[in-house]
Design a protein around this nucleic acid. Structure first.
Lengths: 331, 331
DNA sequence: CTCAGTTGTGCAAACGTTTGCGCAATTGTG
DNA sequence: CACAATTGCGCAAACGTTTGCACAACTGAG
């Protein structure tokens, strides 16, 4: 099939080991031999087999990344960040969707183990402690981005959900709103809880009672749909402002408003979370909380590199930032 | 490190080959031996090494996908489609960004070759004929999605750019527009040319002269930015409608209009291309040409499966569909 | 001239599987 | 009961590398 070390060895009349050493610039190989072998390898179109190398060196230079779906722009940016530093460090990236299905998630992780990836990155995992049994055996480093099970498992990188959410709601309160709603995400339990906590903290600090009917957790796995569905509860509860779990939920909410003739921000103020690229292009432009997504991806991969280097790495929690645009107004 | 066939063999007092056959349900292994070995393997946490298997079977069950960036929602949907059928067919996906840099693209492809992927999928390749020399040696199937070099290389899947573009411009003409602009993309030469051709065909068919000043090709690699930059030329040329290379360009254009007080669609009609998810959530909602992106991804992977199965597969060109929303109006 | 050090290369084992072949033990057939 | 067929398992080679060790041929110092 493809040309191997042996083929080159035969052509150069040397042993395979000499070819190997020559191509790896081993000092003990004669300069002319080296040159000869290298040119021969090039002209024969030799491409070393990473799989054979992996087998013997016990290192694959691959990392496995399991995500919910790459169609989510937040996840896409994570991937971009990871890929960037992985590529420059010489690692290839296995990508696999779990579609937010825990069963699929473990299946994917097992595939990765079989492939002997050097490390694993999981985005928005719902597995949590189940990993302990699965992964403690194989000693591959694993880092979780926005893990969705409560508790600190393995190495993780988080965002300051609570602080960000509080800032968002603080902003609404400053604008004079008192009946502020929250539309959450059932499929991201932990960050949802944290953002909800920030929401509650802001209200309590302003001595505004937390009313259950202002908190909506529509039972859907689609961000947009949750926004649209949550609207009914919001109007029923007479909210004048809504903080949404994320931008896409806010966008769904806004679409619902449009259909019902509710004006944003005149009738209803809306703030999202994430600051996805499109947020500033919406009209009205979306007020939201910015997450350094690509940076989170880079950081995750850098943590991996540190771990592979035997360093002790710290879990990281990155901060986010309120971006005020046009979907929020005085009450 | 991790438990191998030999470890199980020792524990079961049989030979490694027996273990291998037992786990692979070879008929010539005794039922009790088989059961014993299987339970032993499970309790010892055995996970077969895909790399050792690959080495001997000469099949890695991996496919390499090189994309421009996953942050582009169009590309993301391709990836989702590919991943879906790859996963169910038992293949893992290597993903690598080229950032639309041809040099990076060949580097990535070489990495894939070294990893002995079973097939390669390239999105929006700018390499084209260069592949011949690179890939003819290694007999791995390759399929290109929206190849950006002219000429038919390898197996490809395309979209009916020209027909879609013509439909878009036809729509504008029907609405009474005569001065219709086009804002293109320099970094996607082929599909840009095709969409431009559709634009010209529509005009010619309506006996409207094609005027160079109505065609803008802003020199930028950012979709949004090209839209914003193209606006100046459009107003200078007194366009009453603009067909944009893609939705993100249209969104950039619309943002520029907003800043200059140009009303959409009253002052300017805009139509995009792609129908990315957000298009229907914009206000006004974007008139555009829908591409079956996920389907294209699936199809690409299905072509791969066919090729790996030794079948002769046909290049596919999928059709697209005009979706009229709110950014277009009578002149 | 001798001997230690250096330089250049080859042998062979190893990585963890799969698989063709061989062989003993069991089963079935006449 | 004899012999063929079947059943159950092991041996060893192979996949394409890397690498410790051995070894021969030089080089240079004393």
């Amino acid at each position: 099939m493809s040309v191997s070390l042996h083929d080159i060895a035969k052509a150069a009349n040397v042993s395979p080991s000499t070819v190997s050493r020559a191509l790896n610039d081993h000092p003990r190989i004669g300069t002319q031999t080296k040159a000869h072998i290298k040119s021969l390898a090039k002209e024969m179109g030799y491409i070393p087999s990473a799989v054979a190398q992996s087998l013997i060196t016990n290192k694959t230079w691959t990392i496995g990344m399991v995500i919910t779906t790459v169609a989510d722009p937040v996840v896409a940016d994570f991937v971009d960040g990871v890929d960037e530093v992985a590529q420059t460090a010489g690692y290839s990236l296995f990508l696999s969707n779990s579609r937010n299905d825990p069963q699929r998630e473990v299946a994917v992780v097992e595939t990765f183990q079989s492939r002997r990836v050097d490390a694993i990155i999981v985005v928005a995992s719902r597995i949590g402690s189940t990993y302990s049994s699965k992964l403690d055996q194989l000693k591959v480093p694993i880092v979780l981005i926005e893990n969705q099970k409560h508790g600190d498992f393995y190495h993780s990188i988080f965002i300051e959900n609570t602080i960000g959410a509080k800032a968002a709601v603080d902003h609404l309160i400053e604008l004079g709103h008192r009946r502020i709603g929250f539309i959450g995400a059932v499929d991201r339990p932990k960050s949802n809880d944290e953002r909800l906590l920030g929401y509650k903290m802001a209200l309590q600090q302003a001595n505004i009672p937390v009313e259950p009917e202002l908190i909506s957790l529509p039972d859907s796995n689609d961000d947009f749909e949750r926004g649209q569905r949550g609207l009914a509860e919001m109007v029923a509860a007479q909210a004048t402002a809504v903080f949404c779990y994320n931008d896409r939920t806010a966008i769904g909410l806004i679409k619902g408003c449009e259909q019902q003739g509710i004006l944003i921000p005149q009738h209803l103020s809306v703030v999202g979370f994430d600051d996805i690229q499109i947020a500033s292009y919406l009209r009205p432009a979306l007020t939201t909380v910015r997450q350094p997504r690509v940076q989170m991806g880079r950081l995750a991969m850098q943590m991996i590199l540190g771990l592979l280097d035997g360093q002790a790495v710290q879990n990281q929690t990155l901060s986010c930032e309120l971006v005020v645009r046009q979907t929020t107004a005085r009450k």
